[in-house]
Amino acid sequence: MARTPIEFRHNGRDQAIFVEEGSNLLDVLRRGVGDFAPKYGCGQGTCGCCTVLVDGEPHLSCLTLAETVAGRSIETTSGLGKGVELHPLQQAFMDNFAAQCGYCTPGMLMAAKSLLDHNPSPSRQEVVEAIAGNICRCTGYEPIIAAVLDASSRMSGRRSA
């Protein structure tokens, strides 16, 4: 199979990599780049575990052709925290017990980050809509919704401070 060289930004760093023709972004991130944060769930774009941001927009990396991200910027949960300092979303997920098994968490965090980047003070309904493409089978969603709203108020406190 043909291998194509592509370059993209990965969590703020330039990444150059050969990708197999037709390979998906999730495979390239996990096997090529070694970023194991995005998870493989269903492989057909219905569970949301593999959600990453492409130029700030949430994308299902299992359905995204790797070659289409050439020259674009990819964000995953590996890039959320700064060193040991967690992103307010990560801290709010911990404080609100928004994970049990944790498998959906990386996708939830990226869907939530995209929401808060575009809409820093979302309503509960807007949070529900933002995570509606991400399946969670442990928490019953309520702690996740609470965590995103909590992160939003923490971040607005930080902005006004």
Partner: peptide
């Protein structure tokens, strides 16, 4: 046979508990 059709409640279907 999959997540599209085998339905479970989503975040919009939950209720205060």
């Amino acid at each position: 046979i999959d997540f599209n059709d085998y339905l479970m409640p989503g975040p919009g279907d939950i209720a205060p508990h």
